[in-house]
Structures are given as C-alpha cells and as structure tokens.
Design a binder for these strands. Structure first.
Lengths: 206, 206
DNA sequence: ATTTATATTAATAGACTTATTAAATAATGG
DNA sequence: CCATTATTTAATAAGTCTATTAATATAAAT
C-alpha cells in the first residue's frame, strides 16, 4: 500500500500511460501529463520506469503479446479449416473491438521507428512461424481439393487485417461524419463485422 | 528570387513541412527541423506561415483536396456503373501509390483532433454530396436489375478505403518483415492491387 | 524503537520548442 | 541613386519537456 491509499502507483502509471499513448501517440504524451492523470508527482513516472522510452516499451510489448497469443491458440486447435479461418477473423475483430486504438498505435509507432520490427520479429517468429506453417499447409490442402481458390496465406492475412483494422481506425471518423448516436454506431459495427466476414469468405471461393 | 538563389523559400518550406508532417506526424516535427531541411533560418518558417498550426492547415487542406477532386471527376463521367466502380478503385489506389503516407497522416490527425472533421465536412459536403447521390442512385438501379448484391454505398466505400489504405500503411512493415527487395516489393504492390480489385468486385456479386 | 527500505515530493539542470523582436541584408521601383 | 519594400538573420522571451537530485515522508523489519 502506498501513501495515498492507492493499491499501486506503479500500475496506475502504466495504465494511464497506456491509455494516453494509445489515444494520442507517444510523442504527444508527456510524462507530466501521465503524472497529472494518475495524480502523482511527475518524478514518480521516472522513479518506476526511469525513462519514457522504457515505459513505452513495456506497454508496446504487452500489447504485441496480446495479439499474438490469441492466434497461437487458434492455430493449435483441431477443427475444420474453414471454421479456423472464421474463428481467426472473429477473434481478430473482437480483440480490436476491445482495443480499438491498437491498430493506429502500432502503425504510427512502426512509422516512427521501423527498426522496432527487428526486435519484435525475432522474439515472435519462433512462436508464430510453426502456426503459420501449419495453417499454410491446411490452406494448400484445401486449394488442392478445389474447395478454395488459389490463394497465398499472406494475402488472406492482409485482407483480414485491412478490413478489421481500418474499420476501427475509421469508426470514430465515420461516427462523427454521419452523426450516428451510440446505438446506431453499435449497429454499424456489428453490421461491418458480418460484412467483413462475408467479403473475406467470398474472396476464398474458387 | 531570394538571397540564396533558390526559386522560392516559401515553397521550399511548404514542401519540407509536407514531407516531414507526413513522414513523422505534426507533433514530432519542429519548425527548427523544417528550417534545417530547407537550409534557412528557423524564423523564416514563422515569417511565411506565422504559426506551425497554420502551416499544417495549408498542407492538410491541399491534401484533402487532392483526394476529393479526383473522385468528383469520376462521378461526373458517363460510363457504365461497373466501369465507374473499377475506376474509383483504381484511382483511389493510384493516388495512394503516389502519396503512400497520406492514410496514416489523415488518420493520426483525425485522432488527435476529431473536431477538424467539422471544418472539412462543411467545405466538402456540397461538392461530394451530389456525386454520392448520383452513384448511389446508379447502385440501387443495378441492384434492382439483379446485377449486384444488395449493398449500401457506404459499405462499398469502407471496403475500398480499407483494402487500399491499409495496404500502403502496412507496405513498409511487410517489406521489412519479409525482407523483400525493391523489385519484389513492387511486384507485391501490383499483386495486391489486382487482389483488392478482385475482392471488391467479388463482394458485389449477387 | 530504531534501523532499513520504499515511496514521494519539490527543485532544478539542461535541452528543446514556438513565436516574436529588432537589426541587417537584398531586391525593386521611381 | 535613393527610398521603399521584402527577405533573412541573430537574439531572446517564455514555455515545455525529460531526467536527476536531495530531502522528506511512510512502511516494514529487526
């Protein structure tokens, strides 16, 4: 327990930083602002995380894991291929629904620092690679059976990522432009979820 | 002609700022850095544009117009509906190809300042609205004829924007991860152009 | 109860930011 | 050629930002 009766200042800083970094980006967020949100002294941010950069990295990695871990589960499941694809699309959508700021967060960070990919790639490839290969084998098998149009897995991934990610990036913009209320916006989201699913599945038809 | 023999310092500042704002974002670009790129005194940036904000707005609006103006042309063309859709997809792709940083530029700016949409909307709606209505009428007509699946125009736009925009946002990332050389990356782009076209057209089939 | 470890604060160094100023330089028109 | 206007520079005000420091307060442990 700390002085102010909060459970954990260190955690509070992490959560505030997470929210601010995702909402406004790394560069536009100051440690002063993080401290103000938490209600602590600005020095506390540096006391626990030393530098703003380290604080960011802690958040970045946890968010990257959030993504990859979900896909690993699906990859190891023993269900028909098409169900697996449907599940990947659905889970990807749901993760973004719960973390709508993540796509822009990742994209802007990679733009600012493309080298960060090196770090990510090495630490993730060993986990992702086997799953990728497994799904790819199943995909090629389905294609050979004539059940699916000849497709590269990387294309399928691009399509899923594009449709789902951009939906949540554009969501606040579309909501504002069309002047939807919250109920309409909710309906719009679930409509697009179905639409994205349909578009992707149709693109796989022979 | 100015002191340093350049044709136009004012223009050079605009172009440098354009590049930097799009590459790194508004917040991460300083007027000092803009001046350094141009090779002029930092005060010159403020001499010509007074504030960094005004400089940004000049760029933002010109880029917004670049987008809308192209679509207006297509809207007023007198060609079959499906050709028109194909052309919209293609032109949208080509504009992004020539300006690959624009999607992220717009998205991050709207995230930082959603109210900016108000300004844009008012000044653009009067031009866009008629084109939108015209295409929408043609779309509904095709649907009635049974040539196209029942679709809302806003959905079609979302799909086109998603697939094309995210391609260029993810392009440098994919290039880095897969370690493509420039020739392979070029091939990848034109492959995805066809792929996006195919996906969208297939999604319109009844 | 006193030492030890942890948490927190205020103060501040040092670098960088935007924007303005006054002075210097260059271009231009009469 | 001189006066006027436009362009450019150096200097600087006023502020913010990150990160560190030393001092202080609280909690835990012996």
């Amino acid at each position: 327990m700390n002085q102010k009766g909060d459970i954990n200042t260190e955690q509070a800083i992490l959560e505030a930083a997470e929210r601010l970094f995702i909402e406004k980006g790394f560069g536009a967020t100051s440690t002063t602002e993080i401290a103000k949100v938490v209600g602590c002294n600005q020095a506390m941010v540096h006391y626990y995380y030393r530098t703003k950069e380290r604080l960011f990295e802690a958040i970045f990695e946890s968010k990257a894991k959030l993504f990859t871990s979900s896909f690993l589960k699906i990859g190891s499941m023993d269900i028909p291929f098409m169900d697996k694809i449907k599940m990947i699309i659905e889970i990807h959508f749901d993760i973004l629904h719960a973390n709508p700021g993540l796509p822009l967060f990742f994209f802007t960070e990679f733009r600012a620092n493309l080298d960060k990919i090196e770090t990510i790639r090495e630490s993730i490839r060993e986990f992702i690679e086997p799953v990728y290969q497994k799904i790819n084998t199943e995909l090629k098998s389905e294609i050979k059976k004539g059940k699916i149009r000849n497709t590269e897995l990387v294309d399928l991934i691009m399509t899923i990522a594009s449709l789902n990610a951009t939906l949540f990036i554009m969501y606040p913009i579309v909501k504002k432009i069309t002047e939807m209320d919250d109920a309409e916006a909710d309906k719009f989201l679930s409509h697009r979820k179905e639409e994205n699913m349909r578009i992707i599945l149709k693109s796989l038809e022979p």
